[in-house]
């Protein structure tokens, strides 16, 4: 049996859960599944069981602990301020087993440097930014922008070019976020850090909130920021988009990184936007996290449909500020990412 070292470290946090069940109120996986195990509370109960040794790991335990987007929506309803997603994440770290879908992602990152099992050559783009030694600013393009949604990388680089900002493009390694989310050691970051150390980079800009989250441990060394923060800080003048836009807060960009205002500031410049019924801290997660949607495609699909449905009722196009949300939601409805909005209407 595992030592449960990660859970032991936050034992007090786990004990603080009174079991009140308020965290069921708006948890998307509970909404879709409806069983105790689908809720944040159920997963904390499992953490109790693992800690006390009353249960041992098996496929159902792994499955339950992985069936959570770590979106943190439940924490908004918890009156005991329990860090629910941290507990679930810690429990994942104490597990030995991995779901097949997750093993595939991890193998792929180890072999190809991306989670999609694609040859690294296929990421090549015509725009490459400038040589690294000539700038202190880097743009980190994540795997989503490099392989699946190249248009977003193109849009980001086009914005930098239009604004005359020289950026070095870092796009040859996965940030390792999916591995971290799954609960395994992320060895990617130290690889990237070594490369960055050879350059003169002081600031790193991300269009992917998940990549940015992976870089948090390096935030003393580098200034790290989301592209919406960078752009909102510039004196931009956007043309009227002429369409009804509705902004979808990514759980990572919003609840995890606390970035709500900047994307809104940009959208206001583009002629105004509307809000989802639940927005900012209360925003609903779309299920687009890579590890989650790979292992639980049906639940992730239903989560996206809910969001698309509300946008459709309001006759609006969804604006994302995360390539993961973009890639996922686009399978169900009209979506544009914030980098595309800025690039198009600058």
């Amino acid at each position: 049996m595992s030592e449960m070292n990660h859970l032991k470290k936050i034992q007090h946090e786990i004990m603080c859960c009174t079991g009140c069940g308020y965290c069921k109120k708006a948890c998307p996986t509970f909404d879709m599944g409806g069983t105790e195990a689908d809720s944040g509370r159920g997963k904390i109960f499992l953490a109790y069981g693992l800690l006390s040794g009353e249960i041992e790991e098996d496929t159902s335990v792994i499955q339950t602990l992985q069936k959570c987007t770590l979106c943190g929506r439940c924490e908004q309803d918890c009156p005991s301020l329990v860090k629910i997603s941290d507990i679930i994440h810690a429990a994942r770290k104490d597990l030995h087993g991995v779901l097949p879908a997750h093993q595939k992602i991890m193998d792929s990152i180890a072999k190809y440097g991306n989670p999609f099992g694609m040859e690294s050559e296929s990421r090549k783009n015509e725009q490459r930014g400038v040589e690294a030694e000539n700038t202190e600013i880097a743009y980190f393009a994540g795997c989503m922008e490099n392989y699946m949604e190249k248009g977003l990388k193109r849009a980001a680089l086009s914005i930098f070019e239009k604004l005359g900002v020289d950026v070095a493009v870092i796009d040859n390694e996965c940030c390792g976020n999916p591995v971290e989310i799954i609960g395994r050691e992320n060895k990617q970051l130290s690889k990237i850090e070594k490369k960055l150390d050879d350059m003169a980079i002081k600031k790193i800009i991300f269009s992917c909130p998940s990549c940015m989250q992976s870089f948090l441990p390096l935030n003393k060394k580098f200034e790290i920021m989301h592209i919406s923060q960078f752009l909102a800080g510039m004196d931009l003048n956007l043309k009227d988009a002429g369409m009804k836009l509705i902004y979808h807060d990514s759980s990572v960009l919003g609840r995890k990184l606390g970035i709500y205002e900047e994307p809104r500031k940009l959208l206001e410049m583009a002629g105004g936007f509307i809000e989802f019924k639940q927005h900012e801290e209360l925003a609903q997660c779309c299920g687009g996290d890579l590890a989650f949607s790979a292992a639980f495609p049906d639940t992730a699909g239903k989560m996206a449909e809910r969001i698309v449905e509300e946008a459709r009722e309001k006759n609006a196009t969804i604006v994302t500020a995360s390539p993961h949300c973009y890639h996922h939601l686009k399978k169900y409805g009209d979506v544009i990412d914030i980098v595309e909005v800025v690039d198009r209407f600058l």
Binding site: A37, L46, Y48
Partner: peptide, 19 residues
């Protein structure tokens, strides 16, 4: 039907001190 180890374990609680 819930008969998995994890599923059954989570249904053993309420908001009390018992399980």
């Amino acid at each position: 039907i819930i008969s998995s180890h994890a599923g059954l374990y989570t249904y053993g609680f309420d908001a009390s001190i018992h399980h």
